[in-house]
Design a binder for these strands. Structure first.
Length: 564
RNA sequence: UGGGGCGUCGUCAAGCGGUAAGACACAGGAUUUUGAUUCCUGCAUUCGGAGGUUCGAAUCCUCCCGCCCCAGCCA
């Protein structure tokens, strides 16, 4: 696993770890420790899921227990094999192992059915014939208790018969459900005789047409946990109200054990949206280019953007786990990214917006010279490479200013700068087009400064990145920025898509990158010196048509200063 | 106005009766062939508010205020 830093160290404590550590110390669960990551295969994973993944797999690793990857596939209406596949690939990419076996709630359908029968026999569940609307009516409201279903006291034998016939497909969708018999007057609405099985004559991605009744989440989840010997069932805050039901079910049924459900706050990031529905809207309405659009917080998206698993893992560790609802600054995520990329990304040079520079005193066009460049100035072990210098080179347009202020440490008429790993050059002349745009610079170089050092000890304020005509190839570059302008895009109740940043993607053509980059592997991070971290796009880049995605910029204090 | 949660620096977040960790951000400074990195320095007399208990409270008690979640045959 490639990591640029020791992430095992300094793992933060949180209340969940404290509980687990205490349980282990007391010898609870015979000293076992098992968690699970239970996604429903009805969409793509996003960075919010990464928090749960890192938490569940992380504590398992740390306490020498295990974490099961279990698909909560109880609703064939929404689920699909393609989601199962993408989730598996995302979890793997994040760097976690789930052992030999992947678990599926659907593998427990037979046992779940038996547990339901057990509940019926105990008089703790009944088949209810209320319609969905009637049921809503009978449920009561937040402030008023519900009414009992007329079927609530149906005899056990009849319930058993009806449930069996539900299973055999004798009834249409919606005609009957199986309900737990708890308390219609409970202040907790989840306890007002919740539905635990419904009829859905629908093919399931895994069990195909074997079933036409499917268990509900509440019934399935706790029992699945128990069947797997899960000790700590970690979930998000909205399930707190379900905990009494989770516990009731496990108490009433002959489950092998009784896992402890612990809730934590889900992750929110500013300048983005995280809900499945909203992400879907962005994709479907074409605001972005698919689920793996590099601007999306999906795992597939940030991966394509160039984020590394190590950075994400570190981020999840840094933000901690608590029960407080929060919105984390993406800056924190970007910082974790830079921290990792700074260690692992080789340095190269690329000019995004080229300005031609002719070296007046260079012998002649076509004569080239090879110079050494370090792949990572702080890590000589990463080696060096050759870069080509010649009479015609290109620098970043922004690195030249005709009427430059004193603090501008770059090129300007009469000023001298260093071209990284090459020579000092001095700007002698500025060539403009009819509109007055600067189109070319005429400079001289100092042959004594080869490599970038001046033998006479002469100092120069700025060092520019550059590329030569012979040493570069054209490329397209996608400049990605935050997808939304608003910190909380969904704050106003009207259309959140109105907050989309029109410049979240700026496509650049005519960029020039070092020849070295022709073989850039997709998703592999490179630092384009002085610009940021980039990677070749995994979907569209090719040797003949290079496309780089900007993963994140370098910290830029000059930009901050110059704006003032 | 039923029930369940949550409120510690701009953003996360430790703290669990002994006198406010850390990270990011921010502000200074040093080093630098990336205005990057790295390295120093500073940054909550105060923990939603008000009372109370205590020698001592962010931590315990009371009341109040604010925010989030729940009325799917979704998860």
């Amino acid at each position: 696993m490639e990591t640029g830093f020791i992430e095992e160290e300094n793992r933060k404590n949180n209340f969940i770890k404290n509980i687990i550590a205490e349980d282990l110390e007391k010898g609870k669960n015979n000293g076992n420790m098992i968690t699970r990551f239970p996604p429903e295969p009805n969409g793509f994973l996003h960075i919010g899921h990464a928090k749960s993944i890192c938490l569940n797999f992380g504590v398992a690793q740390e306490f020498k227990g295990k974490c099961n990857l279990r698909f909560d596939d109880t609703n064939p209406a929404k689920e699909d094999q393609k989601y199962i596949d993408s989730i598996i690939s995302d979890v793997k990419w994040l760097g976690f192992n789930w052992g030999e076996k992947i678990y599926y709630a659907s593998d427990y359908f037979n046992r779940l059915y038996d547990f339901a029968v057990e509940l019926i026999k105990k008089g703790k569940a009944y088949v209810c014939g209320l319609t969905a609307e009637e049921m809503r009516d009978y449920r009561g409201t937040l402030t008023q208790p519900g009414k009992e279903s007329p079927d609530r006291d149906r005899p056990v034998a009849e319930n058993l018969d009806l449930f069996g016939r539900m299973k055999n497909g004798e009834f249409e969708d919606g005609t009957y459900v199986l309900r737990a018999k708890i308390d219609m007057a409970s202040p907790n609405i989840n306890m007002r005789d919740p539905v635990i099985y419904r009829i859905k004559k629908m093919s399931h991605p895994r069990t195909k047409d074997a079933w036409c009744i499917y268990p509900m989440y509440d019934f399935t989840h706790g029992i699945s946990d128990a069947l797997e010997g899960v000790t700590h069932s970690l979930c998000t805050l909205e399930f707190q109200d379900h905990r009494p039901l989770y516990d009731w079910l496990l108490d009433e049924v002959s489950a092998p054990c009784h896992p402890q459900q612990i809730e934590f706050a889900r992750m929110n990031l500013n300048y983005t949206v995280m809900s499945k529905r909203k992400l879907q809207k962005l994709v479907e309405n074409g605001h972005v280019d698919g689920w793996d659009d590099p601007r999306l917080p999906t795992i597939a998206g940030i991966r394509r953007r160039g984020y590394t698993p190590a950075a994400i893992r570190n981020f999840c560790n840094i933000i901690g786990v608590s029960k407080k609802e929060s919105r984390i600054d993406v800056g924190l995520l970007e910082n974790c990214l830079r921290e990792d990329l700074n260690e692992v990304a080789p340095r190269v040079m690329a000019v995004l917006n080229p300005l031609k520079v002719t070296i007046e005193n260079w012998s002649e066009a076509g004569i080239t010279e090879e110079l050494d460049a370090l792949n990572h100035p702080q890590k000589p072990e990463m080696g060096k490479r050759k870069i080509v210098f010649s009479k015609t080179i290109y620098i970043e347009h922004d690195d030249f200013m005709e009427n430059a202020p004193k603090k501008f440490f770059r090129l300007a008429p009469g000023r001298e700068v260093r071209l990284r790993y090459a020579y000092f050059i001095t700007c002698k002349d500025v060539i403009k087009d009819k509109e007055g745009n600067v189109v070319e610079l005429i400079c001289t170089y100092d042959p004594a400064t080869r490599g970038g050092d001046s033998p006479d000890g002469r100092k120069v304020k700025g060092t520019l990145h550059w590329v030569s005509q012979e040493g570069s190839v054209p490329a397209f570059v996608n400049l990605y920025d935050r997808l939304f302008l608003a910190e909380d895009p969904e704050a106003e109740n009207d259309d959140f898509t109105k907050n989309i940043n029109p410049e979240s993607l700026v496509r650049l053509e005519g960029c020039l990158v070092e020849n070295y980059l022709v073989d850039a592997e997709p998703e592999k991070a490179y630092q384009f010196e002085r610009l940021g971290y980039f990677c070749a796009d995994s979907k569209e880049s090719s040797k003949e048509h290079l496309i780089f995605n900007r993963t994140v910029t370098l910290r830029d204090t000059w930009a901050k200063v110059s704006q003032k």
